[in-house]
Nucleic acid binder design. Structure first.
Length: 302
DNA sequence: TCACAATGAACAA
DNA sequence: TGTTCCTTGTGAC
């Protein structure tokens, strides 16, 4: 499931698998039949991500915007023998005919006929003769004109992998520190910075020993700059490995091991009541704007 | 079989 | 602040 790293991975994989190809698009579930028809049999020009938004641009000038929301997912199946890679060692070693993008990438029955029957509620299927991508459970899946794509993009805060230079960094600092809302809320605000979700929010705050309830405007620019750089680093790593790994207290060997199980990847996320990995205090969990906020009351509260 | 949670966000009031 | 939408997997009965 998706925070910004997952969507960049999807964009990278689709660029590799689909860019330059004519796609057959349809909606097995039926809820996106009209939209799919508008791009079907067109050539995919590009697949790009900004934060949690995926844009698939076609040569008829239309784009599909996909937002996975809280439980959306892509499943990619490739005919054995022509499977492309998402670029990570894990993908390469899998070499599987089927891959689920996100944390769990698993193999399936190699005897399955190709293309496989859509399973469950598939909103959109994209097909070439040797590759199939199934989209299920998105919060958004719509066809946009170039102007509409620009409008969506303009509402988004900087993404470290899109706005790589100084401008992105300065924009982030300006937006972050210009509101008195709690920093725990502001880091999740996609108009301030793109791609951070509930896991990265909690982990980044912990990594900087920050009280989630501090007014965002109280952060000095050095702290803000450090947050941006850290997010950039975590995002890069997440895109590379496909996994959100945020711990800094592990040797490389332990880290590799911890990648495999979500129980060991995080400092605080999902660990309410368990001992802080740094000070041993029980991790707290509060509801912040309907989302679960995890933090260490000793390391982070001032 | 059912309830519930999950890495999200739009919308109403 | 509360409600709604999207789908699947898990665990309790």
């Amino acid at each position: 499931m998706p925070e910004g790293h997952t969507v960049h991975r999807v964009a990278n994989l689709f660029t590799e698998l689909f860019a330059g190809h004519t796609l057959h698009a349809w909606s097995p579930q039926g809820r996106f039949s009209e939209g799919a028809k508008q791009v079907s049999e067109s050539r995919l020009v590009s697949a790009t991500a900004t934060g949690k938004q995926l844009f698939l641009a076609f040569d008829n000038d239309l784009s599909i915007r996909v937002h996975l929301g809280i439980y959306g997912a892509w499943d990619v199946h490739t005919l054995a023998g022509v499977s492309a890679r998402a670029g990570s060692p894990r993908d390469a070693s899998l070499g599987a005919p089927r891959r689920r993008l996100g944390e769990h990438e698993s193999e399936t029955d190699p005897d399955e006929p190709f293309p496989p029957e859509p399973r469950g509620q598939v909103r959109l299927r994209l097909e070439t003769p040797d590759t199939v991508a199934d989209l299920r459970g998105p919060t958004a899946c719509e066809v946009l004109t170039p102007q509409e794509v620009d409008a969506v993009r303009s509402r988004l805060g900087p993404d470290p992998l899109v706005d790589r230079g100084r401008l992105g960094e300065e924009e982030f600092i300006a937006r972050l520190t210009s509101t008195r809302r709690a920093v725990g809320l502001v880091l999740m605000d996609q108009s301030v910075v793109s791609g951070i979700g509930n896991v990265y929010r909690a982990e980044i705050l912990f990594r900087h020993q920050l009280d989630p309830y501090l007014p965002s405007s109280s952060l000095d620019s050095d702290t803000a700059r450090a947050l941006w750089k850290d997010w950039k680093k975590l995002l890069r790593e997440g895109v590379k490995t496909g996994v959100m790994m945020t711990r800094t207290d592990l040797t490389p060997a332990m880290k590799t091991k911890a990648l495999r199980s979500s129980a060991h990847r995080y400092f605080v996320y999902g660990r309410a009541g368990q001992a802080c990995r740094v000070c041993g205090t029980a991790i707290s969990m509060d509801l912040m704007a309907t989302r679960k906020l995890y933090y260490c009351p000793r390391c982070q509260l001032s």
